[in-house]
Amino acid sequence: MKLMHTKLPEFIRKMKVAAATKGSTYKECEVVGLENLKTAKMQSLRTGRIEQAVEDLAKMEDVYRVEVAVIPRIPESMHSAIVRGFDKDGNPVHAVLETINILHPTEDVLIHDCPDIDDRRPPIGNH
């Protein structure tokens, strides 16, 4: 089970369901940070734990809405740039592959003003 993965739309739906049904009232949940992904498989083990986190917050009476922001754990990510040229019919005819490394803000920008933080992440290298 640990190695199974969840479909991206299912991941988003699960979070919305947890927020909507687990609190004393209906609560909205927005998943942000994955807008650039059209298809992906999400680690199931962590999907369940994030659902649990959404539920935990949805149950709190002072919480009115929930947000799940997914950002890179390592604030530098390496990407491939696939540069493709297309012919007049829209078929790819030439491609150059390059890399681009992107530096991102750390999670501190989202939690610096939050008084209660429960860091449930394993140490880096221990995932």
Binding site: I74, P75, E76, M78, N101, L103, H104, P105, T106, D108, V109, H112, I124
Partner: peptide, 27 residues
């Protein structure tokens, strides 16, 4: 170091890169 490529430190909006020869604001 824990980030893969650059010799950089990062916290929130602040980045100190290339062994402290470039400072950058990520917002």
């Amino acid at each position: 170091k824990k980030i893969p490529i650059h010799n950089a430190t990062l916290t929130g909006r602040a980045g100190n890169n290339n062994s402290a020869t470039e400072m950058m604001h990520y917002i």
